[in-house]
Design a protein around this nucleic acid. Structure first.
Lengths: 242, 242
DNA sequence: AACTTTATGTGCGTAATCGTACGTCTGGCT
DNA sequence: AGCCAGACGTACGATTACGCACATAAAGTT
């Protein structure tokens, strides 16, 4: 279906799974469409599936009773949702929803847990990814504590750019303000600054990355650490050939 | 030695390990002293041990080339250091050091990996803890993005209070400023505010919690979510008796 | 006791961001 | 063509925290 020699999966985690496990993984995957605002995991409700994104972007946010919300993780075709199931945890206070339309291959909780138990290599890839996801969350904490809105916005746009095809993607200031934990007018102003610097071009509900290098300069060290670890631990890790 | 019916381990994770695994775990543990500023894990250097704290407090911080540092995790007798080893990862960009003196039971990387492979119940307890550690990091990101310094300081003091015996612990404003990612004079001022409200008493290098309830009111929803999940997933989880 | 280190107290101009309130534009719908 | 909701632009006082600079004070050192 999806995993074969000619047709490699577009999800980076699936493409790193050892060949011996391909058939078992393939058998339990199901393709689904992802639309903006779709909720993949409701806070404190049982998780039902693990989604391996093939395109599009999902966000993991934490919220409180007093209505504050902030993004603590971002997922594209490099990752998967539903990590708590890997940890023998049935639900989490975090919410996962779709930020940018796309597609995913998903498997049920039962299928996922079965593979985790029976396929150590599958488990190892997922655990390495879980570690990197943790690094992303930590980097977000650092960003919110130590960097300006301009730097954080540059970081977010870079992370989004890493996860979409092409240089343009749909996103509203309103969404960005939730992601970054700031008020909406502040996003508008800061977008104009980045636009004035020639790094991006903004249209209604759309942002285009024009000069990625300059954006990376602006983001500074708020961007890059988890990304480097992903390359070291997953992309560059040697997988035995079939 | 440590794990026995009369002498339960003071580390909450070890005390949750299934009885069948006690002997195997006990055999590889070694007691060590922890002194302030001791480094348990250097950034990007191979991890050598997993430490199960029995007393004292450790901090996990992320730092950048441009000298910014911030705490992304805190560990006491409820947890353990070296989680990347659980994820099949040999090193991490984060640094772990001792914040408050104490003791730990540690095991070597090899011993830990062996137990992870051969003792599924041991692995499950560790994985649940790893999930909660992730929640702490996420909550920290939320705190830095959405709460004032006063609220964040109250949260940190509560988390520290949860991990020490008694109501007083040694901590300097300088350390707190690193933990919270703010400048040091800001900590001093905010400590005075909390002291003025009658919640704490501050001496040179020491802080005493006087009114915990009021401190929790000040911290608001910046405190409590990961703590509740720890209780749900670890403390209240039923473990088969010997 | 003099000295050094470490820790704390304080002030003040500046920058970043909030909170709030409007006004305007765009694209889809009827 | 007209309507409407969602998205964007702008302004401004208030608040929070930064970034210095410097004074004081407590503990350890010799």
């Amino acid at each position: 279906m999806v995993i074969s020699s000619q047709n490699a999966p577009r999800n980076s985690l699936l493409s790193r799974m050892p060949p011996d496990d391909h058939a078992a993984i393939l058998a339990v995957l199901e393709r689904v469409e992802l639309r903006r605002k779709d909720v993949l995991a409701r806070p404190n409700e049982p998780l039902t599936h693990v989604h391996f994104l093939e395109s599009g972007v999902a966000s993991v946010v934490v919220g409180t009773r007093d209505r504050r919300r902030i993004e603590v993780g971002i997922i594209g075709s490099e990752g998967a949702t539903g990590l708590p199931l890997l940890f023998d945890v049935d639900s989490t206070p975090h919410e996962t929803f779709i930020q940018i339309d796309g597609e995913a291959l998903r498997m049920s909780k039962a299928a996922f847990c079965g593979l985790i138990e029976q396929r150590p290599a599958f488990r190892k890839v997922m655990m390495r990814y879980a570690h990197i996801f943790q690094l992303f969350t930590a980097q977000t904490a650092l960003s919110h504590g130590s960097y300006t809105l301009e730097e954080r916005l540059a970081r977010w746009l870079l992370m989004c750019h890493d996860r979409v095809e092409g240089d343009e993607f749909p996103i509203t200031h309103e969404f960005l303000s939730v992601m970054l934990g700031v008020h909406r007018p502040g996003v508008t102003t800061t977008i104009h600054i980045l636009e004035g610097a020639g790094t991006i071009r903004a249209r209604r509900s759309h942002i285009e990355i024009v000069d990625r290098e300059k954006l990376e300069l602006i983001a500074g060290d708020s961007y890059g650490i988890p990304e480097a670890e992903y390359r070291r631990l997953i992309t560059d890790d040697v997988v035995p050939e079939p």
